[in-house]
């Protein structure tokens, strides 16, 4: 890490966030809303990506999405908390805490058993949420009007303010995730997939590394959940259903896992795809979605993000610029 060369990913994240903030005024409301949904999903997917880097397939990201969303909805309803920034911080802390607690137990699991146990826990929570009237049952809970940094915006202003909050929360969380992945711990995580035993011999605790990654994944999932909840102003148990978590993993598959930017790209691609399919084929949108998914998996198995990497590599080759290996963040994973 040097001070002279700014980290490209962080620069890109900042530019994107600034660009989106300025552009926000010209984007139609419904596209802003879809973007907010995509950003929320992207954060949860980023959590799934962190775990996937450790070779762990999680079908339980929905649990943290749920935890984040319901922390916000319940705090709003029962604690009278209505400040968006506080709700976001609180929700991230709670979901991170939940992940820390479950992590003690789940960091022993690998492979398909990790996937299935995360799925089982998430579905248990789904079942409880459907039954418990405190949680609003299957109808879920509505979140009324919230204030943002003390300002009580209404109508379109609130939507715009919420959009900006989403952009910057997501930007900050993505930076945190990026710094984590770049750190020593982040590199250890990647080594886990290759060979755990070797890592243990090197004196690293695989369990606590996985535990740390799991807490980060939980916090990211919670951040996604609270943003989704505040944008939609409605939460329901479907957040914890296994297909929600499946979507998050699929976003990572769609985009590849080259950088923390990938899930954002994947989430937008999926949301555009879904909107396109639903708008044009109301009777067969699943089929259209499935077909495009299949084509992507078959023909761009490294993820759509790989197209950018390939383009970037071509540009670099043409410009004959020598890129130092340390700066080349976006190397495709084997």
């Amino acid at each position: 890490m040097t001070l002279r060369k700014p980290d490209t990913t962080i620069v890109v994240l900042l530019l994107l966030a600034i660009g989106a903030s300025i552009g926000a005024w010209w984007i139609p409301g419904w596209i802003r809303f879809i973007s907010q949904m995509a950003i929320s999903a992207a954060l949860a997917s980023l959590g799934a990506m962190v775990l996937l880097r450790a070779g762990l397939l999680s079908f339980g990201q929905g649990l943290f999405y749920f935890a984040g969303a319901y922390t916000a909805a319940l705090s709003y309803k029962y604690l009278g908390l209505n400040e968006a920034v506080l709700l976001i911080l609180f929700s991230i802390a709670i979901s991170g805490g939940v992940a820390a607690a479950i992590g003690f137990f789940i960091s022993n699991y690998r492979g398909i058993f990790f996937a299935m146990l995360t799925l089982a826990i998430s579905m248990l929570v789904y079942g409880i949420a459907v039954k418990v009237s405190l949680f609003g049952g299957s109808d879920g809970l509505n979140i009324g009007l919230i204030s943002i940094l003390g300002f009580r915006y209404r109508g379109p202003d609130l939507q715009l303010a919420m959009f900006l909050i989403c952009i910057w929360t997501a930007g900050l969380m993505a930076m945190v995730a990026h710094l984590f992945l770049r750190s020593r711990l982040g590199k250890v995580i990647e080594a886990i997939e290759d060979n755990e035993v070797r890592l243990e011999y090197l004196g690293t605790s695989v369990r606590s590394s996985i535990h740390a990654a799991y807490v980060l994944a939980g916090a990211l999932g919670g951040a996604g959940g609270v943003l989704a909840a505040l944008s939609a102003r409605h939460v329901d148990p479907g957040f914890a259903y296994w297909t929600t978590a499946g979507d998050f993993v699929f976003i990572v598959i769609l985009s590849g896992q080259a950088s923390v930017l990938s899930p954002f790209f994947g989430a937008f691609a999926l949301e555009v795809l879904r909107t396109f399919a639903a708008a044009n084929f109301p009777d067969a949108w699943q089929m259209v979605l499935g077909t495009i998914m299949l084509l992507i998996v078959l023909f761009v198995p490294k993820g759509l993000g790989h197209i950018f990497i390939a383009l970037g590599a071509r540009w670099k080759a043409r410009g004959r610029t020598v890129v130092p290996a340390a700066m080349n963040e976006e190397t495709a994973r084997p």
């Binding site: 089929m287 499935g290 998996v297």
Partner: peptide, 28 residues
């Protein structure tokens, strides 16, 4: 057959895509 050399999770999602196609195909 085209996906055996890739990670299993990719194949998982390929089968998910097939499932989605089947869902609507049976309906249609």
């Amino acid at each position: 057959r085209r996906l055996y050399r890739y990670p299993e999770v990719l194949v998982l999602f390929a089968t998910y895509a097939v499932f989605l196609i089947f869902e609507d195909a049976t309906k249609l």
